[in-house]
């Protein structure tokens, strides 16, 4: 194939061709139909957003409630432990004082005899 022949073939291939009637409208219609099919209704989108937010809030509240409940239970337990600890110290100091008193009382008596 020589140069001239090639140019003619190229020209023929690249010549402007008229689009068939209604092709543009057909393409636009198809694109719209596709968009329509994939688009979710506005109400459904809102529901999803609010639902997600509500779930998040519910989970957060549940977490806080659980944490507060745990904290309260620990506080009650700590108060109980504090009472027991104080009682234990009370018994111990009282016992120590009694032992000390008995020793102090007994020593002079033995010396007197």
């Amino acid at each position: 194939m020589d140069e001239r022949e090639f140019e003619e073939k190229m020209r023929a291939a690249l010549r402007p061709v008229e689009a068939p009637d209604g092709l543009a409208e057909q393409i636009i219609r198809r694109a719209e139909a596709l968009a329509e099919r994939t688009r979710k209704p506005v109400t459904q989108q809102a529901w999803l957003r609010w639902g997600a937010l509500a779930a998040l809030l519910a989970m957060g509240s549940f977490g806080i409630l659980r944490w507060e409940e745990k904290k309260r239970a620990e506080q009650i337990e700590a108060r109980k432990v504090a009472e027991q600890f104080t009682m234990a110290m009370n018994i111990t100091t009282r016992k120590m004082a009694r032992i000390q008193k008995n020793l102090v009382v007994e020593v002079p008596l033995k010396r007197g005899h």
């Binding site: 104080t86 110290m89 100091t93 009282r94 120590m96 004082a97 009694r98 000390q100 008193k101 102090v104």
Partner: peptide
């Protein structure tokens, strides 16, 4: 034992003197 003495008179623990020559 001396550490315990610091608690006497507090938290409902009676005020008891726990020294060497002291009495209860």
């Amino acid at each position: 034992l001396a550490s315990l003495g610091k608690l006497t008179g507090k938290f409902g623990i009676p005020n008891i003197q726990m020294n060497s020559g002291g009495t209860s």
